[in-house]
Amino acid sequence: MQQTAPSHHRRSLAYSASGDRVFSVIIALLASGVLILAVLMAWELYSGGADPIRRFGLLGFLTGTEWDPVIKKQFGAWPYVLGTILTSIGALLLSFFPALGAAIYAAEYAPRPVAVVINYLLDLTAAVPSVIYGLWGIFIMAPFLRDHFYLPTYLWAANHAPGLLPFLGNPSGYGLLTAILILAAMVVPFTAALARDAIALVPAPQREAAYALGATRWEVMQMAVLPLSRTGIIAGAFLALGRALGETMAVTMVIGNSHKLPYTLFGGAATMPSVIANEFTEAVEPLHLESLIALGFYLFIVALVLNIVGGLIIRRQAALARGVL
């Protein structure tokens, strides 16, 4: 009972225009948490890595091939940059067509219950922790590839085409190709999900018109659906690329962690995230530590650019779909 007066007062306050203003301020304050996190991250990475970048140059750090904390005290990121590029592009190329196939099949061909199952499984793939992929990679995939693919190929090459050996590298099971394969499996759902959405966005009249012309199902895809969903599919590929660039644990577990150039197909390699995971808690020299943070800064920039480009593509796709409607 004694509550009545204050609550009445609060009510009138809350329901006046100032209530809305207070609410929007509160919500904006909480939301600026996102802003703060992003800015803090960029700043920490920049300021933490500024010294090696200044010392070796913005490009010099990127293209330097020596990562030697002992004798030369020189830090060049190129082996890790190259490893990141090779693994993520390789994984994208390998996963792109299966992912697209699954998306097209689920969106256009499969009977509804099957499509639901496929979609569910694709979502599940994205939710499986990356350490579990790494675990499977270490104990099942790497030994299998070594015994049934790498080693036979290597031994064959040793007898018949010794010129190939420097390109194949050491067939230990841990290495570049193993990392690419596991990454490919991990990024499939990212490409597939966006491709699926983009295909679903294509208006039905487009399909109907093509069918009316007597086109087969594939021809409908080819003529009416894929051209309109192209940008969305590309955006999905960008997202997958971003994910592949940053994937850390599964890659660290199977890539072999070797930064000796040149890289070979079967031999060990390293990526920017994997070297941070390996060395960050243990880098003793300040310059070594700062070089790792500088690597993180470059990774940040690459992810930023990829996201902006991918976002632009998605927006264009949305505009395109609206335009057609």
């Binding site: 904390p69 002992v70 004798i71 050491n170 230990s172």
Partner: peptide, 18 residues
């Protein structure tokens, strides 16, 4: 001459384990 001593060195060959 090539590698030297330290807690982490620039390995000429090989795979890394943690």
């Amino acid at each position: 001459r090539q590698v030297g001593r330290g807690t982490s060195v620039a390995w000429p060959v090989g795979l890394g384990g943690k």
